[in-house]
Design a protein around this nucleic acid. Structure first.
Ligand SMILES: [Zn+2]
Ligand SMILES: [Zn+2]
Ligand SMILES: [Zn+2]
Ligand SMILES: [Zn+2]
Lengths: 142, 142
DNA sequence: TTAGAATCTCCAGCGACTGGAGGATTGAGG
DNA sequence: CCTCAATCCTCCAGTCGCTGGAGATTCTAA
């Protein structure tokens, strides 16, 4: 293999993405099918590194694969308008904020559960009581 | 079937848990194997309703199935000490708090992404720029 | 009697990977 | 040149907590 191309293991090291995950991304079409050597091994280049880093970073920031697929398509057309990318990012932001709100409500309930317990028998354990009856909760829905 | 017992559909209505989910809980041992009628249909009683409501409420509060399994075992022994239940709940609380912290960091990054965009071409889109290079981020790790 | 509702079992799919089995190929040291 | 570990390949199964569909049976009410 020429030195200018990377084997899958080298790509994995450069990007921090595990080898099976790289193959998985190819299988779902997030990465294009990599050209193969004569012995059927995948080869990559610097563009692959950039693309995979983009994917990895987007995943770390919580974007779903479908959103990343669209973001990649948009990124491939630098002359086009960026509004769609922004819409995607704003939707993701809204999703994160909603998850935080729900988790904060959960946190309050679970905190009340543990703080209300006198640490005695199960019979009088506030944790068990609350689990057994949602009426002990502050929030109507979880 | 005697009127004092419930069919699975009735149990589902009483608890808000879907029928396939009830069967799933039985299959993984969260619910005991339900006694069957002569024609092989599952039968339940009021104790089943209480147990399933407990499970459902714990799930709504975000407890994992393994934790619920332990909580149920503890709840079945009202005379025992409740410390284990409290440990489980505290661990869950810590997990929720850690998830919130991580999500807040994500929210900050994604918010910065969208707020920094001038809504022009992809070429200069801040969303795309940040995704392509983690160096634009505030936090070292996500 | 008969239609339709309810139940049964088995199995596949979701999302986003992760890892193992079993086999082929490569590269480096002796 | 030879051997052997490292690397790579494909295929498949498992993760978690459900969810729903297919096809068969049984119950219920008109
Ligand atoms: Zn307690
Ligand atoms: Zn509640
Ligand atoms: Zn933009
Ligand atoms: Zn980043």
């Amino acid at each position: 293999m020429p030195t200018s191309t990377l084997a899958i293991g080298a790509l994995a090291k450069r990007t921090g993405v595990k080898i099976p995950t790289i193959r998985y991304y190819e299988s779902i079409g997030l990465l294009p099918e990599a050209p193969r050597t004569g012995s059927n091994r995948r080869t990559y280049d610097e563009a692959s590194v950039r693309r995979l880093r983009f994917i990895r970073h987007a995943r770390e920031l919580g974007f779903e694969v479908e959103a990343i697929r669209q973001l990649l398509t948009l990124a491939d057309d630098p002359g086009g308008p960026c509004r769609e990318a922004d819409v995607l990012a704003r939707a993701h932001l809204a999703e994160i904020e909603s998850r935080i709100t729900r988790l904060e409500a959960l946190r309050d309930e679970v905190r009340r559960m543990v703080e209300g317990c006198a640490q005695d028998q199960v019979r009088s354990c506030h944790v068990i009581e609350v689990l057994a009856d949602h009426a002990h909760c502050l929030h109507e829905r979880h």
